Amino acid sequence: MFSDFGIRLRRVTPSRGEAVPVSYSHQDDYYIIGLVEKGTGCGIIDFKECRFSEGDIYLIQPGQVHRFVSSEEVEGWLLFADSSFIGSMEKNIFDNFSLFASSVRIDKRRMDELKQIASILADRIDCIADELMKTTVRRLTEAFTGIVAEVVREIGLQQAKQNRRQVEIVLSFRRLLSEHLAENRYPSYYASLLNISPVYLNEAVKKVTGMNVTLYIKNEVVLQAKRMLVHTDLAVKEISNRLGIDDYAYFSRLFTQATGISPSTFRQRNLK
């Protein structure tokens, strides 16, 4: 079922053969929230394996390359929501969560709430007749994503033993990196934008992610390269240029060192 303003909701049941929605690698510009009522499954989100089972919620954010690998008797819901339906607070919570995991276990009360909202939303999306009904659908969607954000925030607080200030620095660093990666890959540049010292930026990134700033930036280059290799038809040299690396040989060495295979081989293996 689709709306004409940025929401899609899909009921997943084994009998309908929809337990594996999309099995090839692809990239979307909206949020996907999966609610697993029964069964088990496995997917790849940004080239990392993500397993989910009964009682789990999983989250795919805009821009992440993903695909579903396998499933067994999965039943639940998939909500596809345009970024405009996700509030700034929820986006920040989801960004924070992405530092640590892609899926979480939900408590029974909130599971029941989400199932009820999804059921109502499914009926509403199918029969929108005017602006008032459209507003109701938007509010139901916001309620659904808000409850998911509550769960994610609680789990995140349990998992994140880092200093809150350091987590905020890393989130801001990641946002800046996504905007300026092709322009500048020097830690000192991002430290200056954040008005902190390079030493403190490195300390915060290492504490939260387990790697220093230089390695984190290199890994981000490789991740963006992986996304373009799978999601576009750009030649490897063009991808290197888009990432701000004029030395194609250096880019190939960087990618191969990080992944163990060349960019061309990576593309071949992930487009099967």
Rank of each mutant, 00 (worst) to 15 (best):
I125P: 00
L132F: 15
E90Q: 15
P21F: 12
I120E: 13
P263A: 14
L181C: 15
V236C: 13
A118P: 11
Y186W: 01
S3R: 00
D56H: 09
I33P: 05
Q64E: 15
I44W: 03
E142D: 07
L171E: 11
Q166V: 08
G41M: 07
S240F: 06
R174G: 14
H231A: 11
L215A: 09
V230A: 12
F173N: 05
D56M: 07
V167F: 14
R175W: 01
K134H: 08
L201H: 09
L79K: 03
F52S: 06
T135K: 12
S70W: 07
M1I: 09
D246R: 10
C50R: 02
V152K: 00
P198M: 02
E168V: 02
V69G: 10
G34W: 05
D112K: 05
E37R: 11
G260F: 05
V205Q: 04
D4H: 04
N241P: 07
V221W: 01
L177F: 02
E150Y: 01
L9K: 06
E154D: 04
S53G: 06
G146N: 11
F52P: 05
L234H: 12
K207W: 02
V74W: 00
K237V: 07
A182G: 11
D29I: 10
V69S: 15
R253V: 06
V104W: 04
S23N: 13
R67I: 08
H180C: 08
N212D: 11
D107L: 03
D246G: 14
P14S: 15
Q166L: 14
H180T: 10
F5A: 11
V221T: 04
G244W: 07
F2D: 09
L215E: 13
G146M: 11
I60V: 15
E113G: 08
L114S: 01
L9A: 08
K161Q: 10
G41D: 06
L157Y: 07
S178V: 06
L132M: 13
L114G: 05
G34I: 04
V148M: 01
R267F: 05
I245K: 03
V104E: 09
D56Q: 03
G260A: 06
N212E: 08
K237G: 09
L176M: 11
C50F: 04
E168F: 06
L243S: 11
L99E: 09
S25G: 15
E220G: 07
D82Q: 03
A258N: 02
R253P: 00
F251N: 06
F97W: 05
K115W: 07
I147S: 01
S83K: 10
T214L: 15
R164T: 12
